[in-house]
Design a protein around this nucleic acid. Structure first.
Lengths: 230, 230
DNA sequence: GCGAAACTGGAAGAAGTCCCTCCGCTTGTG
DNA sequence: CACAAGCGGAGGGACTTCTTCCAGTTTCGC
């Protein structure tokens, strides 16, 4: 069985015809743009239209939505993980955390689909695999920041995930009006995250555990939308 | 033309038959429960089924979704506004703000439909009218809190709305796991909102204006969901 | 009791969204 | 120039939700 798609370790099966390659690119561009705005579930017909090709062409090049998502978000997710690694490598733990939060929020707000990939359990396996590296790294990042003494001692990875979620939330809502307004709330949250000499308000609630977070992003089911993606 | 529904200043047109009245009640109960969980756009057929009546019965009693929403949320919204008034009446401005935030978040997290009514521009006119009282009251509340000296001087009503939005967001995501976890993030946010002797991190971003907030909650269109509600 | 009026359930048709296949026509390339 | 590769988009299928309608059932005043 000769796979039409290049299997791993398999040289390019055959270069696409020039026009076909151009169309492939148009599709990727359009999908990237539309999904960033509307999310992973963007109708394929809209994408084809935006790319200026027929729906048939899209299906020929990307037989399933997962193929498209994979081609699109491999890099973006990798960049996200790379940020995380950079942050972990920063000398000052607190600075690293702040830098990461800022970058991650910017990325997620600029790209709704990326947000969905990170927060929910979606996407083809190739991508899942990348996302699995996130949690351990994030854990280390938080630990470093705590060790620096500037982060509240009771702050956890779970908290980090939810802070990101909150930032993505404000961003989604404010960005049409002011694309940078979310930074205001980043500073607000950071102020809350700082350890303080003066007794900080005790956080009576226990931090969510990692195990709990697994279930956290099931996303409440919307109306007539059967889970259409991946 | 004699309206079948009691017009304003019109005595009850005619009491419903006993069985009909009971069914009406069942419908309201079911709708309240389901909409709290799934939002204003919950399919009417689901509601009828949960109420144990036929879809025809639901339509006879509430010809439009707006009629149902009105019957359901008049009280709940009024209670929300009442909270706001109570908070404004509190002596200590900061305490009032904290109390309100806590109550509002609890209400919104417990009732997704209520959240939608408050944040978005939905609902029948009867309800809109109530919601219009929110902004001025909230404005006063924030002013009082600032006057008390405990709230950051640069905090605005717009900020309040977005803080509520963030809390609703965490709540939505955490409540299936821990129904009170959101309180942890309330304390985090409150810490960030406190004025401080030690120079607070300057919020470089300007606060969103009230005019901007009008557009803020247009809520990005989800997938195949034409705006079905109201 | 009894009959008229009120009420009921749910089948059925309409409208809409999105998915995916298929095939006759077009186009790049050796 | 021949022909494999590529193309578009009509059309059928699967859903979901809305809304109407009417033959049968129940309540209530007399």
């Amino acid at each position: 069985m000769v796979s039409k798609h290049q299997g791993p370790g398999n040289a390019v099966a055959r270069p696409l015809r020039r026009d076909a390659e151009a169309n492939r690119q148009h599709i990727l561009d359009a999908a990237g743009r539309l999904m960033a705005e509307r999310g992973l579930a963007t109708p394929l017909e809209d994408i084809a239209a935006a790319a200026g090709v027929g729906i048939g062409t899209l299906y020929r090049r990307f037989p399933t939505r997962a193929d498209l998502v994979e081609a699109l978000f491999q890099d973006r997710l990798a960049a996200y993980v790379a940020d995380l690694e950079t942050a972990v490598g920063t000398d000052d733990g607190w600075e690293g955390l702040v830098w990461f939060l800022s970058r991650a929020a910017a990325r997620q707000i600029a790209d709704r689909a990326l947000s969905e990939l990170i927060e929910q359990d979606l996407g083809p396996d190739t991508i899942r695999h990348l996302r699995d590296r996130v949690l351990p790294l994030a854990d280390t990042l938080v630990e470093h920041a705590r060790a620096s003494g500037r982060l509240r001692a009771d702050f956890t990875v779970g908290d980090l995930a939810l802070v990101q979620h909150m930032l993505a939330g404000v961003g989604a809502v404010t960005s049409p009006v002011s694309p940078t307004a979310w930074r205001r709330y980043l500073t607000l949250l950071l102020d809350g995250m700082l350890a303080r000499r003066e007794a900080p308000t005790p956080a009576e609630e226990p931090a969510p555990t990692v195990a709990q977070l697994k279930h956290v992003h099931d996303q409440r089911p919307r109306q007539g939308a059967r889970p259409r993606c991946c």
